[in-house]
Amino acid sequence: MSKMHVKLKVNGRQVEGLAEPRMLLVHFLREELGITGPHIGCETSHCGACTVDMDGRSVKSCTVFVAQANGAEIVTVEGLTNPDGSLGVIQEKFREHHGLQCGFCTPGMITRAHRLLQENPNPTEEEVRFGIAGNLCRCTGYQNIVKAIMAAAAELNAAKEAAQ
């Protein structure tokens, strides 16, 4: 199958490559770029383990063709780590509140939480639960994930206030 030239920005870095038009974004990220944070759990958009940020929206990268992402700006969980290599606020809160166990849903969950807190910086517990309902977790029962996201919201808001 003939390949097409794709160019996109991933975690702030301009990347390009050749891909079949049918290639899924998640496979391009994982297999062509070696960005293995986004995981594949269902390939039908249900589980959310492959969630990435695409032009400021959460998408399930298992059901987006890389061709659709041509020219887009993508953020994966790898892009949420601080520039100095330390954990970003949401990553740190997941660790602090035991918001993960096997770690397989975690990259998608954190990437979704990142977007959720951009959309709604001060969510209620109910809004967090609704906002991450597209991301399944089999280990944690969500309780500590919700706690982690609420704590991250509080810390991000406090930092924002301090900066003003």
């Binding site: 994982r30 944070g37 994966t76 969980v77 990553q91 993960l100």
Partner: peptide, 21 residues
């Protein structure tokens, strides 16, 4: 005790079988 695994997992640095290349 906070989990030592989580520094890797929260950054997408786990190494699951489909990551083996």
């Amino acid at each position: 005790r906070k989990r030592v695994e989580d520094v890797r997992f929260t950054q997408g640095k786990g190494n699951y079988v489909d990551d083996v290349k």
